[in-house]
């Protein structure tokens, strides 16, 4: 068995004092595309934000490419609720170093930077991640993937449609030269036509061999893009399905309901 690219072990977290997810175990292998499916409001996005370093994990390990991204051990609760001065508290995970490692999270319904133009966003995207090699080739690839963005290069993000905004988000994620790209509900609230267009683009990205972790509410759409599926329910992973057992909408509903019983 090859070594996994992303390994999450017994991860728990949330917004203190509310725990959102607990004991999450997940692994992702190089070249693989994995899906995560679960009901709204059960903590999928909080889990992804924790992976990206926006929220401190409470306990457990996040290993990426064999390297630990978070501080080991349990998060200590603060000494006093009334002590506001947080200068001595260490972050348990640093979003900048997560990006430098190549784990890129494309946020759900990302509004990006409303007053910046498409070109400006795509210009700053690579520099933040430390400018890995292959950027120029990636830029060409992005133009091929999203021809729409070339037309709208001088419009401000605020004037783009939801789908175009999602395209900019994904393009910016790709320009960071990821080793793993996490797409959080890329087709949320999009028209069927736009969904097809975006689906084709994601499929094309998958075919380049870039590992993907995709979250989506549409089972058929999701299953067409992945090799393996995790079901996520009530703040933890309840089931793992491989490509031979990809469920349709009916099956997944019964699976989700079974796990409740």
């Amino acid at each position: 068995m090859t070594e996994s690219l992303l390994e999450i072990r017994h991860l728990s977290g949330g917004y203190p004092p509310v725990q959102v997810f607990r004991n999450v175990n997940l692994s992702l292998f190089p070249g693989e595309s994995v899906g995560l499916f679960g009901p709204n409001g059960h903590g999928k996005t909080s889990l992804m934000k924790t992976l990206a370093g926006l929220i401190d994990p409470w306990d457990g390990d996040i290993l990426f490419g064999g390297k630990r991204l978070n501080l080991p051990g349990k998060m200590k609760t603060r000494l006093s609720q009334h002590l506001n001065y947080d200068i001595f508290r260490r972050r348990r995970i640093d979003p900048a170093s997560v990006v430098r490692e190549g784990l890129i999270y494309v946020m759900q319904g990302n509004l990006l930077f409303p007053e910046m133009t498409v070109d400006e966003v795509l210009a700053i995207a690579p520099s933040a991640a430390g400018g890995r090699p292959g950027i120029q080739q990636m830029q060409k690839q992005i133009h091929a993937l999203f021809p729409r963005l070339k037309e709208r290069r001088n419009s401000k993000i605020r004037f783009l449609s939801g789908g175009e905004r999602q395209m900019v988000s994904i393009a910016a994620g790709l320009l960071a030269m990821p080793r793993l790209l996490i797409l959080d509900e890329p087709t949320l609230g999009l028209s069927p036509k736009m969904r097809l267009e975006l689906g084709a683009a994601i499929q094309a990205i998958r075919e380049t061999g870039l590992p993907l972790l995709i979250i989506d509410q549409n089972v058929e759409f999701l299953c067409s893009l992945i090799d393996r599926l995790y079901l996520f329910d009530h703040g933890t992973i309840t089931r793992e399905l491989d490509s031979n057992h990809m469920p349709d909408h009916e099956q997944i509903m019964s699976l989700m309901f079974e796990s409740h019983a």
Partner: peptide
């Protein structure tokens, strides 16, 4: 400038700027 643009990005959307790897 690159830094100036990054500053504007951080001003407009803190989370998105963090996800891009800006400190």
């Amino acid at each position: 400038s690159r830094t100036g643009r990054a500053m504007r990005a951080a001003a407009q959307n803190r989370e998105a700027a963090q996800l891009m790897g800006f400190n």
